[in-house]
C-alpha cells in the first residue's frame, strides 16, 4: 500500500513531494516489483491535487526507471534486483546531497564540519 502525505504549504512542489515519497518507498522495498500504482486520476482526486501534478510525478518516476506504463492498464513498479535498488538509492541520494553541498561550500562549511554535523543529525541507530 502506497503512503502519501502532501504538505500544501511546503516550498517543495507537490509533484516533487509525490516523487520523493514514492521513490523512497520503492527503494526501501516497501513497494515491490510489478505492484500496480493506482490510476493517476484517482490519486489526484484522493489527494485533492491536480491531475497534471500527479502525471508529472509519474513521468519523473518513469524517467528514473522506477515505474513502467502498460497502455490501457496503468503504471506498475519496475521489478529491481538488490544491486539495481542500491544503485538507484545512491543516485537519488547523491543528487540531493550534491545540491546541498554547493550551499555548504558557499557558506564555508568544511568537509570535517559537514561530517560531524551529519553524524549528530542522523541519530545513533543508523550511524
Amino acid at each position: 500500500m502506497i503512503q502519501i502525505i502532501i504538505a500544501n504549504s511546503s516550498d517543495t512542489p507537490i509533484y516533487q513531494q509525490l516523487f520523493d515519497q514514492i521513490s523512497a518507498q520503492i527503494i526501501k522495498g516497501d513497494l515491490i516489483g510489478d505492484h500496480g500504482l493506482p490510476p493517476i486520476r484517482t490519486v489526484a482526486k484522493e489527494l485533492r491535487v491536480s491531475i497534471i501534478t500527479v502525471k508529472k510525478a509519474w513521468e519523473e518516476l518513469e524517467r528514473e526507471g522506477l515505474i513502467y506504463t502498460v497502455v490501457g492498464r496503468g503504471c506498475f513498479i519496475v521489478p529491481l534486483s538488490e544491486e539495481e535498488l542500491l544503485a538507484k538509492k545512491r543516485r537519488l541520494a547523491s543528487a540531493k546531497i550534491e545540491k546541498d553541498i554547493s550551499y555548504y561550500k558557499n557558506m564555508g562549511l568544511t568537509f570535517q564540519e559537514f561530517i560531524t554535523l551529519s553524524k549528530e543529525l542522523y541519530g545513533s541507530d543508523d550511524a
Binding site: R41, T42, A44, K45, R48, I51
Partner: peptide, 12 residues
C-alpha cells in the same frame, strides 16, 4: 464543490 469537480473529471 471542488471535490465534486474532481470526481466529475475522474473518468477522463
Amino acid at each position: 464543490l471542488l471535490e465534486i469537480f474532481q470526481q466529475l473529471v475522474e473518468d477522463g
